[in-house]
């Protein structure tokens, strides 16, 4: 079920939480908003891994599911 939003913004899911973004927002823009520019993260949109070189080209759409991962301790 789509999250509620006004026509002037889109709602995407970032790591499971609803996040409001401006229409036309790119992965780059989202990372900037989240303070993650230049951080060691990896991004997938609707299960597709987005290469770093495409961050500026991939535009997020309403209801997109974005996963932003980092390296953590593990075995």
């Amino acid at each position: 079920m789509p999250a509620e939003h006004t026509p002037l913004e889109h709602a995407v899911f970032v790591n499971g939480d609803v996040t409001r973004i401006a229409p036309g927002c790119t992965v780059d823009g989202l990372l900037e908003t989240l303070g993650l520019m230049g951080k060691r993260v990896a991004v997938a949109v609707n299960r597709d891994v987005v290469p770093r070189s495409r961050y500026g080209a991939v535009t997020l759409a309403d209801d997109d599911h974005v996963e932003i991962l980092e390296a953590v301790g593990g075995g």
């Binding site: 951080k39 990896a42 991962l69 980092e70 390296a71 953590v72 593990g74 075995g75």
Partner: peptide
């Protein structure tokens, strides 16, 4: 070895694992 997990936004301002276990120093 490292695992991949959702970014911890609360902790993201402090040092992260790879700042300490550096890919320049170790094969990750």
């Amino acid at each position: 070895t490292v695992a991949l997990r959702r970014v911890n936004f609360d902790a993201a301002k402090g040092p992260r694992l790879l700042d300490v276990i550096s890919p320049e120093r170790f094969t990750i």
